[in-house]
Simulated scan of single mutants.
Amino acid sequence: MSVLDDIIAGVKEDLQVRKAAVSLAQLQERIATIPPALDAYSALGVGDLARSELRVIAEVKRRSPSKGELASIADPAALASQYADGGASAISVLTEERRFSGSLADLDSVRAAIPGVPLLRKDFTCDPYMIWEARAHGADLVLLIVAALTDAELAEYLALAHELGMAALVETHTDEEVARAVAVGAKVIGVNVRNLKTLDVDRGVFAPLAQLIPDTAVVVAESGVRDVADVSGYAASGADAILVGEALVIIGTPRERIGEFKAAGAAAISAR
């Protein structure tokens, strides 16, 4: 069993508990009482072929399977506020509990504090219920990992997200997965340079995969962002956006770090 398989097995177990506690009908009732989803696609540059700035998706992330404990983050909303002040185009909130110590309560608190910035519910989506659940808790984006879904599921989940007014970050790791993401019409395609079987990071895989993604889709570099040099490298190789968590949560000045990343990215984009 790969790390991804193991994580999803746990996600499915926890999902059954939540399904027993909150029905789909209850989620739908809640959705009817909250504001509609924000336009995350526009925020990330979809439709803007003359992209000149690097978008930053800043992540609220306490721990990871590869690094263990990263930061306690007692107040996710306060951290997210710093992200928003720093110019993050979207904020990612990990809600997976077993490996990442996240929760839907984290998503709720960030949504309440940051009403105007799109939120990504970062979890291992493996059931349509989770998409309804994400919207009911204020998310504007969901994560769809190609390696974890069949073509039919990928198409179904993407369609449901759009039906609910949401966007999707479609994550890929190989050329075959990029082809599947493009075929389903993904507008935001992430290239994760972390091997989900070994958890090793290889930044060298980004450039060749990014070149396979059409200009009409936003390309997001995922994993491996340590510093300005990494950001510049990704942007020079075709990234329109970066998804970064660890490099922000371990530093005491995330707002300033986002500014540094955006400046470095813009310079690299203008030079490519």
Rank of each mutant, 00 (worst) to 15 (best):
M1K: 09
M1I: 10
L4G: 13
L4C: 12
D5N: 10
D5Q: 10
D6Y: 07
A9T: 14
V11K: 10
V11C: 10
D14I: 00
K19P: 15
A21C: 04
L24W: 05
L24T: 08
A25F: 00
L27E: 00
Q28D: 07
E29H: 11
R30D: 07
I31H: 03
A32P: 00
T33V: 00
P36S: 13
L38F: 07
Y41A: 02
L44T: 04
L44E: 01
G45M: 02
G47E: 06
G47I: 04
D48Q: 08
S52E: 14
E53G: 13
R55E: 03
V56M: 01
V56I: 06
E59Y: 06
K61C: 13
R62K: 15
R62C: 13
S66A: 14
A71H: 11
A71Y: 07
I73A: 11
A74G: 05
D75W: 07
A78E: 05
A78P: 03
L79T: 05
A80K: 00
Q82S: 12
G86P: 02
G86Q: 02
G87A: 05
A88L: 07
S89E: 08
A90K: 00
A90H: 05
S92R: 03
V93H: 01
T95G: 03
E96D: 14
R98S: 13
F100L: 13
G102V: 07
G102H: 06
S103P: 14
L107F: 06
D108H: 13
R111P: 07
I114E: 01
G116N: 11
K122Y: 15
K122F: 15
W132V: 05
W132F: 14
E133G: 14
E133A: 14
H137P: 08
H137V: 09
H137L: 12
V142C: 09
L143Q: 03
L143I: 06
A147Y: 12
L149V: 13
L154H: 00
E156T: 09
E156M: 07
E156P: 03
E156Q: 09
A161C: 11
G165V: 12
G165C: 12
A167R: 02
A167M: 07
A168T: 08
A168V: 08
V170Y: 03
H173L: 13
H173E: 12
H173K: 11
H173W: 06
R180M: 10
R180P: 07
V182M: 02
A183Q: 11
G185S: 04
G185E: 02
A186D: 05
V188T: 01
I189G: 10
I189Q: 04
V193A: 09
R194K: 13
N195R: 09
L199T: 05
V201M: 00
R203L: 11
R203E: 04
F206G: 02
A207Q: 05
L209R: 04
A210R: 01
A210Y: 06
Q211T: 15
I213K: 01
T216M: 04
T216I: 03
A217L: 03
V219Y: 01
A221D: 00
S223D: 02
R226Y: 01
A229K: 05
S232V: 05
A236G: 07
S237K: 10
S237H: 14
S237A: 15
G238W: 03
G238M: 01
G238P: 00
A239L: 02
A241F: 04
L243S: 11
L243H: 09
L248Q: 10
V249M: 08
G252D: 12
R257K: 12
E260M: 15
A267G: 08
A268F: 06
I269G: 00
I269A: 01
R272K: 15
